[in-house]
């Protein structure tokens, strides 16, 4: 695919999900560290927001498969290309995997999964101590891994924007390019 930028829909999904996922990770670590009344408020946001991220991630995956992505600069060193591709696979896996693990974890604990407006989701696993313990650990540790990968992703994006200035950052970041001309390598 030869376009210089992601499609408008892809950019919209990226930035919307960026906000959702960062909010989600901060809400997650905040809620498990408090017993104050905000605990319930945070939990009541965490669940529906997680399901929203799952839906958005699935839409985004379909859009990505349909529209692809701008190719990376030809002069980008191979290890960086590999890192870029791998990190994006990891991000997709986590965007889809984390909400599913959370949902499965609540199911294995026989907790009702209540979304906004009292909508209840069905359990996707039977009650199970061992599965709950496994999924709880996965959800907990993958959250920190997710945040670390996001920090790496931001650092790489800024590296492209400020140091390499190779148009990779603009492929997702720019609202519009003057005259519609993309920076050529």
């Amino acid at each position: 695919m030869n376009a210089q930028r992601f499609t408008v829909l892809q950019r919209l999904l990226h930035w919307l999900m960026a906000i959702c996922i960062l909010a989600m990770l901060f809400i997650g670590v905040a809620m498990v560290s408090t017993v104050m009344p905000k605990y319930l408020t945070l939990v009541s946001i965490h669940k529906p927001l997680g399901i929203a991220i799952l839906v958005l991630a699935l839409v985004r995956l379909v859009v990505r498969l349909r529209y692809g992505a701008p190719s990376l600069p030809a002069d980008l060193p191979e290890p960086m290309k590999l890192a870029a591709q791998l990190s994006h696979y990891v991000l997709y896996l986590l965007m889809i995997g984390m909400p599913l693990i959370g949902w499965a974890m609540l199911s294995a604990a026989a907790y009702p999964v209540v979304l906004f407006g009292g909508v209840r989701l069905p359990a996707i696993l039977p009650q199970s101590d061992s599965l709950h313990a496994l999924l709880w650990n996965a959800h907990y540790y993958l959250a920190f891994a997710f945040f670390a990968v996001i920090l790496l992703h931001i650092a790489a994006a800024l590296f492209h924007a400020l140091v390499r200035r190779d148009g990779v950052f603009e492929a997702m970041a720019s609202v519009s390019l003057p005259g519609g001309a993309a920076p050529a390598e």
């Binding site: 901060f26 560290s33 920090l151 800024l158 140091v163």
Partner: peptide, 25 residues
């Protein structure tokens, strides 16, 4: 200017990590 840019990136990442650690208690 590369060094300056790298410093800016380091500060942004450190600030994000700090905010996360603060939120986590």
């Amino acid at each position: 200017s590369v060094l300056g840019s790298l410093a800016v990136i380091a500060v942004i990442i450190a600030a994000a990590a700090f905010a996360f650690a603060y939120t986590a208690g």
